[in-house]
Nucleic acid binder design. Sequence first.
DNA 1: TTGATACAAATAATCATTATCAAATTAAAT
DNA 2: ATTTAATTTGATAATGATTATTTGTATCAA
Lengths: 145, 145
Amino acid sequence: MTDFKTRLNQMIDKLKANQHRITPQRMAVLKILATSKGHPSVEKIYEQVKRLFPTTSLATVYKSVALVKEFGEVLELGFTDGSNRYDGNKPYPHPHLVCTECRTIMDPSLSALADMTHELIQETGFKITNHRLDFFGICPECQKK
Amino acid sequence: MTDFKTRLNQMIDKLKANQHRITPQRMAVLKILATSKGHPSVEKIYEQVKRLFPTTSLATVYKSVALVKEFGEVLELGFTDGSNRYDGNKPYPHPHLVCTECRTIMDPSLSALADMTHELIQETGFKITNHRLDFFGICPECQKK
DNA sequence: TTGATACAAATAATCATTATCAAATTAAAT
DNA sequence: ATTTAATTTGATAATGATTATTTGTATCAA
């Protein structure tokens, strides 16, 4: 089975297991979240869903995204400028690399982060439950321009 | 000179150098930003300013904070839940440790972050201009309860 | 002191997100 | 297949933090 179908089924199972229905609109949102590599915004998801179901309301997309978020099946990335982006592929905390020119968001691999977290726990006595790490900059493409 | 006065003077100089006036209300906001170790919100700043100048408008506080932010003299920490907090002591990017119970925000020292940034630049070719690193958890005090 | 400009206060506007609610749809039971 | 009870949708209103607007006031340099 493809990777995205595994993710999709995981989302569906999670909803079904909690007495939530899989409607066509909701399924469309789930598919987009499971497929998109580009960390889409609600508006972007809305645009795509409307192609399949033109009468879909923006509120429905918000509610569907909130639902999968509630069950930990999507990662919400809120930014200071108000834009929220979503990652349904890796719904757990991980670092992001944001190009401030073209708004592309990438997932760099930074293995040292785990060590840093452990160091932090040792030093502060905190029980760490979550984290957020974003780097902002200009991607190679945008630097050329 | 005390540390906070140095910070305060730096803020004042930056504003004056850019043809901005130091009004009593604005001075009060600057002092709070330079003094507070607790990463205050706009509302918290507003409360304090009103003690000195009861007629102060919330909009004035927003504008004052936005002004010092414009000149890089305060660090804005926007959170997903909509709450914005400000750091006038260290107005440059640095890691934060947030207790999700009592909303206390601390500044842990994580020297490994610089190495991680360099590694990222090597691997991606990005020109890194900014970053944001937050750890969320329960502080030792709140764990006792 | 004056004059030009910036600023403060009060309030209206904005905009992303959330809440509301009647009508439609769903999944399960008969 | 129908029925049924609950959930979901779609349209729209409400929310709330932040920003813009406006008018009168305070500031600073000459």
